[in-house]
């Protein structure tokens, strides 16, 4: 069964007829050719498909495209402005926060969404009392970025990159 929807992806509007079974991830990759979100597990267990959906980081593989009608999607490809990398992306390059690059767009989107969450005062399970206002130290970055697996093992550099990006944005 099919349904007509409209997706706004990286600022561009796409009217689209989708199979109701199609996930947001497959709609982006297979229908729109937006392949910056990656498919690593297709079950919300790796984070490679992370995109910003209406401003929040989510796993594109677990959202049906039909349920995203009218939504705004930003992928790693749409983060930069005027041809410049987003500060998080530049920090990943500077600190080599990746190797094979397959989890990277998801890591980058996750980091951008996560920094917003911290700015909004959201707590984490990193150990600080939940009632306190969070302070983004390395332990917080590690916990908050744990939904993005990296098999190449770039975590140490990812943490450095996110810390650097936070300092730049400050």
């Amino acid at each position: 069964m099919e349904s007509d929807i409209i997706l706004r992806v990286n600022g561009r509007e796409w009217p689209l007829r989708v199979d109701t079974r199609t996930t947001l991830l497959d709609a982006l990759r297979e229908r729109l050719g937006v392949t910056s979100p990656k498919k690593g597990c297709d079950h919300g267990q790796c984070g490679a498909c992370t995109v910003l959906l209406d401003g929040r980081r989510i796993n594109g593989c677990l959202v049906l495209a039909v349920a995203c009608d009218g939504s705004e999607v930003v992928t790693a490809e749409g983060l930069g402005t005027d041809g410049e990398l987003h500060p998080v992306q530049q920090a990943f390059v500077d600190h080599d926060g990746f190797q094979c690059g397959y989890c990277t767009p998801g890591q980058v989107c996750s980091a951008v969404g996560m920094l917003e969450e911290v700015a909004a005062g959201w707590p984490s399970a990193a150990g600080r009392p939940v009632a306190d206002t969070p302070v983004l130290d390395d332990a917080e970055i590690r916990e908050r970025m744990s939904g993005n697996l990296c098999r190449c093992g770039a975590y140490a550099n990812i943490v450095t990159a996110v810390r650097a990006a936070k300092e730049v944005s400050r």
């Binding site: 990759r29 050719g33 392949t35 910056s36 979100p37 990656k38 498919k39 992928t75 790693a76 490809e77 983060l79 930069g80 990398l85 992306q89 530049q90 990943f92 390059v93 500077d94 080599d96 990746f98 690059g101 397959y102 990277t104 767009p105 980058v108």
Partner: peptide, 20 residues
């Protein structure tokens, strides 16, 4: 820095399944 770095952090580096 990696010469393929900008492509990878923007997700525009093309992997096997992504050739259009």
């Amino acid at each position: 820095g990696r010469v393929d770095g900008p492509a990878k952090v923007t997700g525009t580096a093309t992997y096997a399944f992504e050739h259009q």
